[in-house]
Write a protein that binds this DNA or RNA. Structure first.
Length: 428
RNA sequence: GGAGGCGUCGCCUAGUCCGGUCUAUGGCGCUCGACUGCUAAUCGAGUUUGGGGCUUAAACCCCAUCGAGGGUUCAAAUCCCUCCGCCUCCGCCA
């Protein structure tokens, strides 16, 4: 949720952000009136409660007839307190609901929807297969020739959008993860294996619970959810904690399987492993101060680029438009790699700055750096960025580095982990 | 899965049986001050978190907060219910 103080003191800024996202600002007015209703209800309840407490003391000291009289008096008051408390509860709920309906303030993101992104840069040149004189094979065909991807059996065993990675495919996954974790370690990240099933609070805190219907798998019997990204467990990792500012930024590189229903994308990317129900990912997750979060966001982007550079891919970096951001993000950069057989750039990694949006929901704060400032605690900023999402990285690597005979050149950085320079086809 | 125990303001801890002087005890740690060649020791003060009111701000006042949420009651850390977590033992198990 956003900072209630900003809403109260500068509602126009919130309205402007809504406009940028192409969303209605009705929620702003609703939250504002809910806020004043809430405060009135609090004042009412607290006044009555204070009176009740005073009376309670008298009752405790009184004896005999006097006590009976006081009890009779205070009984009505107790009912009024109960009523006021209930009213406060209702007002509080309405206020929270209204506040939660407002996405993060997207001041800096380009206005507009999905197609209104701003291109920041292009890195590398898409490989010119025509000049090289051969038609590139797509990753499905290459995967088959290399014995790396088995889609038929994936569908047989688990259904559409499932796959087996076999042989060099499996090796490629481990190599990518090792390379990612090596980079993370060198950059000072703490490596983490994160749970893939989480409680509803974790899902709600990261803003994903609203997507239950078309994006998130739920285990009904146990009230657990399968995460679509380890951003979820990593954001909830420090929930209900007050962090020591000395320890910030806290940088984690979390590995986990990710599960996505993809119910809203029927018919999209049905071929191959671009869009699947289950994949593995190494996610960078950072806790830092709001002031530092903007610089950290850039650093995350640099680490993502460094990784794509190691894979020797051609890619572009875009500044995602406000309307295409998730509710938690204030700004998001995507790195999209060139996929030869699609003739376009496809998202491989994504870095978001959520500032305090998730931290407020999950109650993650830092003690004020200056103890005499009187500020007490303040919500931290959370950021996340993909180091590598394995399936899409495999698609890009196979298609980009393929050779006319269906073999695939292994990028130098991966050779150490794969133990070879070329992946050879096992069938024609 | 079964049986039992436990959860108090950074850490430890008193209080829970028997509801009201709990405005939650004491210690450790931490912060500030005094004293002292320095350090240590000693002494004094402060030290949960969130919210509301009043304020330029602070001070101050009030409300909530004893794992979470309900309930009983004039009144709940204390009694009842549900849930969560931790520990011990048994069973099962990679």
């Amino acid at each position: 949720m956003i900072d209630p103080r900003i809403l109260r003191e500068d509602p126009d800024r919130v309205r402007a952000s809504q406009q940028r996202r192409g969303a209605s600002s009705d929620v702003v007015d609703r939250a504002l009136s809910a806020d004043s209703a809430r405060r009135a209800a609090i004042a009412d309840f607290e006044a009555k409660r204070a009176e009740q407490k005073q009376m309670g003391k008298k009752v405790a000291q009184a004896k005999g007839e006097e006590k009976q009289q006081l009890l009779a008096e205070v009984k009505d008051l107790a009912a009024a307190v109960k009523e006021a408390e209930a009213a406060q509860g209702v007002a509080e709920e309405e206020w929270k609901a209204a506040l939660k309906a407002i996405p993060n303030i997207a001041d800096d993101a380009p206005p507009g929807g999905e197609d209104d992104f701003v291109l920041i840069e292009k890195v590398g040149k898409p490989r010119d297969f025509e000049a090289e004189g051969f038609e590139p094979r797509d990753h499905v065909e290459l995967g088959k020739m290399l014995g790396a991807i088995d889609l038929e059996r994936g569908a047989k065993v688990s259904g559409s959008r499932f796959y087996f990675l076999t042989g060099v495919g499996a090796e490629l996954e481990f190599a990518l993860i090792n390379l990612a974790m090596e980079q993370a370690r060198e950059a000072g990240f703490t490596q983490v294996i994160a749970p893939a099933l989480v409680r509803p609070e974790a899902m709600a805190g990261t803003g994903f619970l609203d997507q239950v219907d078309d994006g998130v798998y739920k285990i009904e019997d146990d009230d657990l959810y399968l995460v679509g990204t380890s951003e979820v467990p990593m954001a909830a990792y420090h929930s209900d904690e007050i962090l020591d500012p000395e320890t910030l930024p806290l940088r984690y590189a979390a590995f986990s399987s990710c599960f996505r229903k993809e119910a809203g994308s029927a018919g999209k990317d049905t071929k191959g492993i671009i869009r699947v129900h289950q994949f593995e990912k190494v996610e960078m997750f950072v806790y830092t101060t709001v002031e530092d979060s903007y610089a950290e966001h850039q650093r995350l982007l640099e680490w993502e680029k460094a990784f794509l550079d190691k894979l020797e891919l051609a890619y572009q970096v875009i500044d995602v438009a406000a309307g295409d951001l998730g509710p938690s993000a204030l700004r998001k950069f995507d790195c999209e790699a060139w996929i030869p057989t699609q003739g376009k750039y496809r998202e491989l990694t994504s870095a978001s700055n959520c500032t305090t949006f998730q931290a407020r929901r999950l109650d993650i704060r830092a003690r004020a750096a200056a103890p005499d400032s009187g500020a007490g605690t303040t919500p931290v900023a959370t950021l996340n960025g993909t180091l590598t999402a394995v399936t899409r990285a495999i698609v890009a690597v196979l298609e980009t580095h393929q050779q006319p005979d269906g073999s695939v050149r292994v990028p130098k950085a991966l050779q150490k982990w794969l133990g070879r320079e070329v992946l050879e086809p096992i069938q024609k």
